[in-house]
Nucleic acid binder design. Structure first.
Lengths: 216, 216
DNA sequence: GTCTATATCCCGATAGAC
DNA sequence: GTCTATCGGGATATAGAC
């Protein structure tokens, strides 16, 4: 479907995908809250009413972006931790991948976590986070002698550590530009290693598996 | 509308403070990006032009809110870690206070970290974060035999861990309602303790002191 | 210091033509 | 599936009266 001239002919069959792409660009520039269907349409050269053929409303498009974001995050984490030789290094690599996603794909990161969308109204979003949990949990299980309560606790701690580094990197805490980004990735790895070194002090946590699936 | 026997006297000398208060309320309801001067004015019963006597523009008001947020955060962290008897427990308590601020004062937390405001155009915001750094650094120094590079590294790791817990608590990762909030606080303390237990594995970091003061 | 009034702009969403 | 046209709403910010 893609031609040499890229963006001009999207409105002949690929508008949906083009809208997601443009949404990512726009979020990178103005943030999730600053994103608007109107500007996305303008940028693609289509009428403001065109997106409504592909998405129910603004939130529906944002949910689609969030789903893609989760997929990319999952891929990044999985790829980085795939060729680790020890469970410890697998968890460290997972943290590294998580933060790398946060700094390299800032717009996607914000789409996944920055939006205030009803996770219940978009069930595919809940499903998209499944593989990510498994990536952290698998390695954590190997470090916890198969105890799921210890593994869940450890996986949650590592993921939260990674998330903290990603968020603070975006705030500029680790310095500006690519250097700050790289430092954030390195720091996340180092901090995770220290956390794993002292993991004996971390209490187990029952039912950690079901924590981020809200059940109202 | 104004009430007939009992006037609202905000617009007689205290509008500035009232605007900050109302901004906090509004941010709690709609997020910092969804905040508007117009609605704040409406809620206070003043004209939309009134705020411009006290703030240059919307961002200026948001910066004032952020400054207050930093002060409250600093107080919360300091109060919680004040009566700790060991450096370890002081750092753990600091993390606890940080997360408690995040879950108890969600709007302030978002005002301090969620806004996309030029930190350079509002220097008082940079100054407001100083005491917070000291709170973490002081305890970290005592744990690092006075080595500032090790202390800076440790303080940064603990603060980032706390921040991660606060952010993920607001995303609902630790569960809904007060139970989720309390769990987040507890987990932050436990994870910090594990991190401190394994701190020998954490490399020192030169110049960590100046990290979050962007110098472009 | 606050009000009224206004200029200017952007947004989401829908109806109906093609 | 896309366009034109439009409705209804809300935002920032300024000018000038009091």
């Amino acid at each position: 479907m893609r031609r040499a001239g890229k963006k001009q002919h999207y409105h002949h069959g690929d508008l949906r995908a083009a809208l997601v792409d443009t949404a990512v660009e726009l979020i990178a520039e103005r943030g999730v809250a600053g994103f608007s269907l109107a500007e996305a349409s303008r940028r693609l050269g289509v009428a403001v009413s065109a997106p409504y053929r592909h998405f129910a409303d603004r939130d529906d498009l944002l949910a689609a972006v969030a789903v893609r974001a989760c997929e990319v995050l999952n891929d990044t984490v999985t790829a980085e931790s795939a060729d680790a030789h020890t469970p410890t290094e697998a968890l460290v690599a997972a943290a590294r991948g998580y933060v790398r996603f946060g700094v390299d794909q800032r717009a996607l990161f914000e789409a996944a976590f920055g939006g205030k969308l009803d996770r219940l109204r978009h069930p595919e979003l809940l499903r998209a986070t499944g593989p990510l949990k498994d990536a952290f949990l698998g390695a954590a299980l190997a470090l916890s002698d198969g105890d799921p309560d210890r593994a869940g606790s450890l996986a949650l701690a590592v993921a939260t550590t990674a998330h903290g580094h990603a968020v603070m990197a975006q705030l500029g805490t680790f310095g500006p530009g690519p250097d700050g980004a790289e430092l954030a990735v390195t720091r996340a790895a180092d901090t995770t290693r220290a956390l794993l070194t002292g993991r004996a002090a971390l209490p187990p946590l029952p039912n950690a598996l079901h924590l981020d699936t809200p059940t109202p």
